[in-house]
């Protein structure tokens, strides 16, 4: 019982603090170097430890806490998938390389020039495109740079791992939400089951 109480108190504390600024902060790093390693490693302001800029960041990392990002456009995965689009239609990089990638606004506008142009969210999209800007999508799935994780999508897709294994059933989601902890336990249980490499150096560099 005491464990559970402690868990609750601690959990709430972390969560509460994190929420204060969850909406304003960019992810310090992201999956497979979505941003450049230099930006991701927080080179400028190492204070708490070289690996974590603040105690909070260290705690969040330790407890696998990842704030839910607030997306600039309430993108609806469900609708797109219902209309027959595949994950790889937009995230083509997943089959080809390390990163799944997020399509450019020009890719979205190829359809949305004509489709659902009255929808206020689509109008937001159109205004980004008109300004020559990308939609500032917030990363959903990422690792702390201090984890030194190297993750490549393509080998997993080739091995027949379904996107849902890590990302959940996106066809039932609107805005994408982090579905798995993506911690070592999560990765390794699958790697062990499929009898593939569990060597540290395969994933950590």
């Amino acid at each position: 019982m005491i464990f559970l109480a402690a868990l609750l108190v601690a959990g709430l504390g972390v969560l509460g603090m994190a929420l204060v600024k969850a909406d304003t902060r960019g992810a310090p790093g992201s999956v497979a170097g979505e941003s450049t390693p230099a930006a991701a490693s927080g080179l400028s302001s190492g204070v708490f430890t070289p690996a974590h800029r603040t105690l909070l960041e260290a705690m969040e990392d330790y407890f696998d806490y990842f704030p839910t990002p607030v997306q600039p456009i309430a993108f609806n995965h469900k609708i797109h998938i219902a209309k027959g689009m595949k994950c790889l239609s937009c995230h083509a990089g997943a089959a080809l390389g390390p990163q799944a990638g997020i399509p450019s606004v020009t890719f979205c506008m190829a359809c949305h020039q004509v489709i659902a142009t009255n929808n206020p969210e689509i109008q937001k999209l159109a205004s980004y495109a008109a300004e020559g800007r990308e939609v500032p999508w917030q990363p959903v799935n990422w690792f702390y740079p201090a984890a030194h994780v190297r993750f490549w999508h393509a080998p997993h897709i080739r091995a027949g791992v379904d996107c849902t294994t890590c990302h959940g059933n996106v066809s039932q989601q609107t805005v994408a939400v982090r579905q798995s902890d993506l911690n070592m336990h999560f990765c390794l249980s699958c790697h062990r089951e499929k009898e593939v490499s569990v060597d540290c150096a395969t994933c950590h560099d």
């Binding site: 083509a92 990089g93 080809l96 390389g97 390390p98 450019s104 020009t106 800007r133």
Partner: peptide, 12 residues
């Protein structure tokens, strides 16, 4: 973020 002029597969 500006719209890129070229298209490369990310990370490849």
């Amino acid at each position: 973020r500006f719209i890129p002029e070229t298209k490369l597969i990310p990370g490849v």
